[in-house]
């Protein structure tokens, strides 16, 4: 049974519209108009026990809304969610003890007290005995490499330290399912690496399932084998990280150096010409016919050097979000790339 199962999740919000200016203000005061915004539409996926899944999408794609539906903070307009076999919106204590949600920087910590106090509160709330809580706190602190920060008030901690404490507070009850919304946002590179290593370690030790959103591709490539991508509320990809390139960039880049200056009309016979600079040519060649094309190039042209490479994944994903339309949804939701 999958740990998290989402079927055809949709969520529509009603937001008030207001025109700018004094007249708009007045009209808004007297008669408000609302419009429906579909934040998430027909999103389905499953997460298996122990899996770390990256959840990608540009700002406003519906990631946070989806996470909130998965944790039961939001009731879906239609579709269903099951987490560990339960409906999260019922918020039953035995389910709550096994899941956690991390969102932003200062959600759980008591601002004017040292983090230790907030951790004690959470330990008590989750019914963890005192000595066990102490052991877990030490263990988490060691994994996250923090110690002397524990005695300073939260408001005096740096962003990175606060995020680490936030993670401790969110994980003290050893949840089996983790929903993490931008856990590394705004952190410096060292802290990002520390959080990343910590999550990998936690996943390994506890076999927990993790669904993670991040703006940093490094987080995703370091932690996730599989990614789920949404755009404008719709699912556009669900599959292995490596498959993203295959799926969205069915080309490879072939860089040639010829013995003499290249002719564009000749080169166009082999693939899409990206650029020609004297004797150096960049071609985009369809993946399927790559071997044949390279063979033809080598036999027909006077090639002095040739390299074949994947376009970088950041660029591919960036391109997907630039022109991927939710209309494409059906085409992408099912496919061989699903794990």
């Amino acid at each position: 049974m999958p740990t998290v199962q989402a079927d055809n999740l949709s969520k529509t919000f009603h937001v008030a519209d207001k025109q700018p200016g004094m007249l708009g203000t007045l009209r808004h005061f007297i008669n408000r108009s609302y419009r429906a915004v579909q934040a998430v539409r027909d999103v389905s996926f499953a997460i298996e026990p122990g899996e770390v899944v990256g959840f990608l999408g540009p700002n406003g794609a519906g990631k946070t809304t989806t996470l909130k539906m998965l944790t039961g903070l939001i009731h879906p307009t239609s579709g269903s969610v099951s987490v560990l076999g339960q409906v999260p919106f019922k918020r039953r204590p035995d389910l709550l003890r096994q899941v956690t949600l991390v969102m932003g920087q200062k959600q759980q910590m008591i601002w004017d007290l040292p983090p230790m106090e907030s951790l004690r509160v959470n330990a008590a709330v989750y019914g963890i005995p005192e000595d066990e809580a102490r052991r877990r706190i030490d263990e988490l602190a060691e994994m996250l490499t923090i110690s002397d920060e524990m005695t300073r008030p939260v408001r005096k901690l740096s962003l990175g330290e606060r995020m680490k404490c936030e993670l401790m507070a969110a994980l003290i009850h050893h949840p089996r399912v983790l929903f993490l919304d931008e856990p590394t946002l705004g952190l410096d590179v060292n802290a990002q690496t520390a959080v990343r290593n910590f999550l990998r370690e936690y996943n390994r030790q506890h076999g927990a399932s993790i669904l993670l959103t991040s703006h940093y591709m490094a987080d995703i490539t370091a932690l996730c084998d599989r990614v789920v991508m949404i755009h404008k509320g719709g699912l556009i990809y669900d599959g292995r990280l490596a498959g993203v390139v295959n799926r969205f960039a069915p080309f490879r880049e072939v860089k040639l150096e010829l013995a003499s200056d290249a002719d564009e009309s000749v080169m166009a016979r082999y693939g899409e010409v990206e650029s020609i600079q004297g004797r150096v040519v960049r071609l985009l060649v369809n993946r399927d016919g790559l071997t044949a094309t390279v063979n033809r190039l080598l036999s027909e042209q006077d090639v002095t050097d040739l390299t074949v490479s994947d376009p970088p994944i950041e660029e591919v994903i960036g391109r997907v979000f630039d022109d991927g339309e939710p209309g494409d949804t059906d085409e992408y939701t099912t496919g061989a790339d699903s794990v």
Partner: peptide, 12 residues
């Protein structure tokens, strides 16, 4: 501020 949300996920 949306801080009620994490409290709702507590079992108390």
């Amino acid at each position: 501020t949306g801080r009620l949300s994490p409290m709702l996920l507590h079992p108390v």
